[in-house]
Amino acid sequence: MPIQERRPTAPNKDIDVVRLRGLGFGYDDRPSVLRDVNLILPHGSFHFLTGPSGAGKSTLLRLMTLGERPQTGRISLFGQDVTQIPRSAIPAMRQRMGVVFQEFRLLDHLSAFDNVALPLRLNGERPRDYVQDVAEMLRWVGLGGRFEALPPSLSGGEKQRLAIARAVITRPRLILADEPTGSVDRAMGEKLMRLFVSLNKLGATILIATHDEDMAERYGAGLLRLEDGYLRQLVPSQRPPEHQPHPEGAAV
């Protein structure tokens, strides 16, 4: 398990990591994609977000990464209302989360090593401080021999593993992943999911968008379903036992 605490953090476990209230969003100035979405992700919770294609799963994750602003409702991250957060404050908020994008969003001109090291570089860390962690993380996701490989030369599965390695290298408090095992075989998928489970045990709050509703049962995680713009909780988060969902429930 290649994860260790990179910097001393003392998260307030009583604060909900994500809190969405009456969230509405659409691409045509009307909240047509998401309607009145309410969600609470308590510290240390683990949820899968499911729903048919086009239901708005990626859009919901994009709102949480502050890539879009909602038309209605409020977003709170780490106990702070970020609905109208100034642009200058967004980078600091993003540095506290790790995101795995469905389309990977790797930088094709950078080596696999530099892609994984990217969040650390942007945090101002020096190569000598992160070279071991990045190397070990790449080995752990099965890319030990591809340090210098450029993303275009990698297979879909390798790109996906690289994207996951980059998302978790900073040991973020919130991990949002959009179909993170969609392009890998079952064995690698299980291995990557164990990585998320381990990070969750260490205190990370995790939300994974997937088509596979059985995952929630396999990993004892909460299950959310997004359909017709509305979010419903099907199963509450069970993992880890010491991080039970907030009494209000994970989804309202």
Partner: peptide
């Protein structure tokens, strides 16, 4: 994460430029 001596001995990689030329 356990330290890997083989990595330490290697020269540090020169980070690639963030913007492609």
């Amino acid at each position: 994460m356990s330290a890997n001596p083989s990595v330490i001995r290697k020269p540090l990689p020169v980070p690639g430029t963030l913007l492609p030329r």
